[in-house]
Design a protein around this nucleic acid. Structure first.
Length: 311
DNA sequence: CACTTGACCTGTCCGC
DNA sequence: TGCGGACAGGTCAAGT
């Protein structure tokens, strides 16, 4: 579920929270968390300082000052959550007034259960925690991943662009120099494939997943099962605009929390409140009030307005 | 080469 | 209440 806007939201949080910090300890309990890693990742990570946090497609790149980088894919249920050194920093924030317990209950009073900004996760580590990074100031970065699809790779920074995925992945849809004619040309590399499968293909365009495929296709009034061949340049031009619109809007809203996505502070995103079709089956289309339907296209749950989006 | 399907996983929900 | 099975969807490998 983390797609481009969710990964970008995590990236912005991490950039603010961990750049400049030095790693003092790394623990991981799931061997596949570091596939094909050097014999002992601790040896390569401990003592290294975070230089930058970047994103390409749905992949995060954490550059270290040791000439190595962490390459992280959250896949379906991955989370990267930063937790500051709790007791010391909380006491300082309260200027020494009141106990830790009191400051925590104040936070609960301020946000309340179910508030959009309420943290979605409890005490960490929890049973989904796969990797724990500890920094020199006592803060932690937790990599949680319920379904264990996500991974972290440790690579020499110069080798990062050489990995298969980056060799094949398409352009960033929000790049300033990514124009509608580029979008149309890339989409037209497919002909008999459905437009939804084409949007989801990371070698065509980077970063689009199920949520923003459905949302942008609704915006452009295109049926997700339409073959690329049957879609006009004019419609693709609109799809280009709608895709950039929904991706930008979602970044602005902090991404979509459909199930368990959270940002680098463990908080939910709010795009889903603005979604027009995704997860809105049996609700009215915001444009024409027709009941939204859910079906299956390209092997994915797919939401459409049957009146706005015809084959 | 173009395109589709299954595997990787676990938590949740639905029907019996 | 418990239990089996379907479902969630990003990517790669294997299949047509």
């Amino acid at each position: 579920m983390p797609e481009l806007p969710e990964v970008e939201t995590v990236r912005r949080g991490l950039e603010r929270l961990i750049v400049g910090k030095t790693i003092t300890n790394v623990e991981h309990d799931w061997p596949k968390s570091f596939p094909n890693a050097p014999t002992d990742v601790k040896q390569f990570l401990e003592g290294a300082k975070i230089v930058s946090v970047r994103r390409r497609a749905k992949v995060l790149l954490i550059e270290l000052d040791s000439s190595y980088s962490l390459v992280i894919h959250l896949k379906m249920t991955g989370q990267l959550v930063f937790v500051a050194n709790s007791k010391y920093e909380k006491r300082n924030m309260k200027n020494g007034i009141g106990s830790l317990e009191e400051s925590e209950s104040l936070a609960e009073l301020r946000f309340g259960a179910g508030h959009p900004n309420d943290s979605l996760i409890g005490e960490l580590p929890d049973r989904s925690t796969r990797v724990i990074f500890t920094f020199i100031d006592g803060s932690h970065l937790y990599f949680n991943d319920q379904r264990k699809f996500g991974w972290i790779r440790l690579l020499p920074t110069v080798q990062v662009p050489e990995i298969d995925f980056f060799q094949k992945v398409g352009p960033e849809p929000l790049a300033d120099d990514f124009l509608s004619r580029d979008f149309i040309a890339r989409i037209r590399r497919r002909a008999n494939t459905s437009i939804k499968a084409t949007l989801l293909d990371q070698t065509v365009i980077a970063g689009v997943g199920n949520i923003y495929a459905d949302e942008s296709l609704w915006g452009a009034r295109i049926h997700p099962a339409s073959k690329v061949l049957d879609i006009s340049d004019e419609q693709l031009e609109i799809l280009y605009s709608e895709l950039r619109y929904v991706l930008n809007l979602s970044i602005e809203k902090g991404g979509s929390t459909d199930r368990n996505y959270v940002n680098a502070e463990g908080k939910r995103g709010n795009y889903i409140d603005f979604a027009r079709v995704f997860r809105r089956e049996n609700l009215p289309c915001p444009r024409c009030q027709t009941t939204i339907e859910k079906s299956r296209v390209a092997g994915r749950g797919t939401h459409i307005c049957p009146d706005c989006q015809k084959l």
